[in-house]
Computed example of a mutant assay.
Amino acid sequence: MAPLQLKAKKNTTLAITYLFLTVLSSAVFASPLSSAAQKEQKGIILYNQLKLDSAIQELEREASSGSIDSQYYLGEALRKKSRYMSPEAQHWYETAAENNNVYAMIQLGRTKNDLCEKIGNCPPTKKTQAEWFSLAKDLVLPRAEKGDPESLYLMYEITLNREWLEKSANAGYSLAQYWMAVSERQGEGFFLIPGKRDASVKKWLLLSSEGGYPKAMMDYLQILFEEGDMANIRHWLEIAAATGDQAAISNYGAYVAHTPDKVGYSLDLVKGYALFTLLGELDDSGGIGRYVERKGEEIREKMTPAQIEESKIVAKEWKATHPPLSFFPDKLGN
């Protein structure tokens, strides 16, 4: 994860607003939760940090307590851990789906049974794949017809009709705007004039970034890097780091500590080391452990004992005022 290898909110408040809207939108198609279940759900945080074993333990507790989001993510975590639709994963997907979680319905509609058929462990289903998709569409279409941005996007996920994706993007849904950029970058859409495709991709990534989507910010930063726009790189990398995105924090921390100095931030060894201290809490999630340890030690060697102590305070303050670290895996994961 070398600095500025950036691939696939104007301030910190925007990052927090994004996360609030994410939580809010995930509840649109689910039953209300109790006040206890509405509190920050540690299992989902751990899932987003790719700590599947720890996440499953927390998600089981949260799911059993009635958190519909946790029921869905428990299904995701169990499926990813076993690498197929295990009976346990299907149980929690179906539990979430029966509580009107459209994301669970879509995953049940997409189920592939190749592996479970080979090992003779395919669980019985409460509905067919077509029935789950039909139920999801019945819930989503009325909202989509009224112009709800998330519902327009979910219609795209249900039908794979790109017109729904474009409608959602034009309605301002940042995730749809990101996927519009990705699809155009991969050759979809018609552009007769040279350069128009690249300009459109950049436009969608900027709109998605302004809507608070971290993956769009990282892709947009790559374009800015290719253009040599250092002022905007500094601006957007700081915003991306404020969302909790681990890759953005890694790059931001390295650059403010001048290890290396590639984008022109003022030297701040204390903040840089503090950020790598926080990244260390991810252990080796996503295979980043050795890089984080090496880079953190590189920064530490430049610091005085007093700066190291100050960095502990900065790390604590950052953690208290920013969203949790996250890899931001796709909610509808493969």
Rank of each mutant, 00 (worst) to 15 (best):
L4A: 12
L6A: 10
L6R: 08
K7F: 15
A8I: 15
A8Y: 15
A8W: 15
K9E: 09
T12L: 14
I16F: 06
T17F: 07
T17H: 10
Y18W: 12
L21Q: 11
L21P: 04
L24W: 14
S25L: 14
A27S: 12
A30I: 15
S31Q: 14
S34D: 01
K39C: 13
E40V: 13
I45Y: 03
Y47W: 13
S54W: 12
E58H: 09
R61Q: 15
E62N: 05
I68K: 04
I68V: 12
I68D: 00
S70H: 03
L74R: 03
L78Q: 07
R83C: 13
Y84R: 13
S86N: 08
S86P: 06
P87L: 08
P87C: 08
E88Q: 11
E88S: 10
H91P: 06
E94G: 01
T95D: 06
A97I: 09
N101H: 12
N101W: 09
V102H: 04
A104I: 09
I106P: 00
Q107G: 07
L108I: 11
C116W: 04
C116A: 08
E117L: 12
I119H: 09
I119A: 09
P124A: 05
T125Q: 13
Q129L: 11
F133P: 05
F133K: 11
S134Q: 14
L135V: 13
P142V: 04
A144E: 00
G147Y: 02
P149G: 02
E150C: 10
S151M: 04
E157K: 03
T159Y: 02
E163P: 06
E163C: 08
K167T: 01
N170Q: 11
N170I: 12
A171R: 00
A171E: 00
G172A: 01
L175M: 09
A176K: 01
M180K: 05
V182K: 05
G189Q: 05
L192R: 15
P194S: 05
P194C: 06
K196G: 13
D198W: 14
L205V: 04
L206G: 04
L207K: 03
G211M: 00
G211L: 00
P214E: 03
P214F: 01
A216Q: 02
L224R: 02
F225L: 14
E226N: 11
G228K: 02
D229Q: 07
M230T: 13
R234M: 11
W236S: 01
A240S: 03
A242L: 06
A242T: 06
T243I: 04
G244D: 04
D245E: 13
D245G: 08
Q246D: 12
A248N: 02
A248I: 05
I249H: 02
I249T: 05
Y252V: 08
Y252G: 02
Y255K: 14
V256F: 04
V256S: 00
P260M: 11
K262T: 14
V263H: 11
G264M: 13
Y265Q: 07
Y265L: 10
L267A: 07
V270T: 04
G272H: 00
G272M: 02
L275M: 07
E281G: 07
D283G: 06
S285F: 08
G287R: 04
G289T: 06
R294L: 12
K295I: 15
K302D: 00
T304P: 00
I313F: 12
K316P: 09
K316S: 12
W318T: 08
K319G: 03
P323I: 02
P324D: 07
P324Q: 08
P329N: 02
L332Y: 00
